[in-house]
Design a protein around this nucleic acid. Structure first.
Length: 276
DNA sequence: GCCCAGGTATAAA
DNA sequence: TTTATACATGGG
């Protein structure tokens, strides 16, 4: 990868196995907006606008320094997804097809608290509405910066009562968000510890929070703590597994199960007819 | 109006 | 241990 300065930010050449829509607008993160100049959003305290032309990634409002510190890890550009995709393709004939269908998916390395909080909001909800709730949460309680608002910290939200979240219109999830904020802010739940804990223990740690079950825990581990062996199973994925992989369990998908899960999810969404 | 959205807590079988 | 229902809200 070669990095160059531009008038508005940087250009990174030699970026492969990345599709911004497949990665930023596939239900892992709820804060990126597709506009005229690309996808704009905020992560790790920085606003940026990204677009991809061939193997050139343009990031407006970024520097070489914060590309190395923030955007390169955020987009998981250190991992060789081409090689991982080849490995996943050998696991099962359907995975060979599915992985070829959305080869530009990458697993974002999001901030753990943001991932936890947004996936609590995602339960029994749809993506359009999730994005609206997250936006109102940031505007109401997050710090203002150029380009938008930061995701509010657990500390900030821990001082609120559930009723005070009424303006974000998250319904019954308000009390779950506050419970999560309090347990994270007080270190009763240690998010960082979940990076290294045995998988079942990491899950159990997160499930100490009201409103966090296996699905929210798995999504937090996958998208917020980069446990790429995590394989979140929801209603849709359960059906996909039954129809397409009757002979496999989530554990059979190996150390890159989370990436395989994303390929399967995208593929099954593109081919709903496979489920009758 | 009615259905449902990348679930979970709670009560009951 | 498995199965049913409520939950807040808003788009299709």
């Amino acid at each position: 990868m070669e990095i160059y300065k531009t008038d508005t930010g940087i250009r990174v050449d030699g970026v492969t196995d990345l599709d911004l829509a497949q990665t930023l607008d596939c239900g892992q993160s709820f804060r990126w907006v597709c506009g005229e100049n690309g996808f704009s959003g905020i992560a790790f305290g920085r606003y940026a606008v990204m677009r991809l032309e061939g193997e050139s990634l343009y990031i407006d409002n970024a520097t070489e320094e914060n590309f190395e510190k923030i955007w390169k890890p955020y987009l998981d550009l250190e991992l060789d997804y081409g090689e991982i995709r080849r490995q996943i393709a050998t696991l099962h004939p359907v995975l060979r097809e599915a992985s070829a269908y959305a080869p530009g998916i990458r697993i974002l390395r999001q901030e753990p608290w943001e991932a936890l909080c947004t996936f609590i909001i995602s339960q029994n909800n749809n993506i359009k509405r999730i994005k609206g709730i997250v936006e109102r949460l940031c505007e109401s309680f997050g710090e203002k910066i150029d380009g938008g608002y930061l995701f509010p910290s657990a500390e900030r939200l821990s001082a609120l009562e559930p009723e005070e979240l009424a303006p974000i219109r998250a319904g019954f999830r308000n009390k779950y968000i506050i419970d999560a904020a309090r347990k994270v802010a007080s270190n009763e739940v240690e998010l960082e510890k979940c990076r290294s804990l045995p998988y079942d223990e990491a899950r159990a740690e997160l499930m100490k929070i009201k409103g966090v079950g296996v699905k929210v825990a798995d999504c937090t581990l996958l998208f917020g703590l980069h446990r790429i062996e995590a394989f979140p199973v929801d209603v849709w994925m359960k059906r996909a597994l039954e129809k397409l992989f009757p002979d496999m369990t989530p554990a059979d998908f190996g150390e890159y199960a989370g990436i395989a899960q994303q390929y399967i999810f995208h593929y099954s969404r593109m081919h709903p007819e496979l489920f009758g």
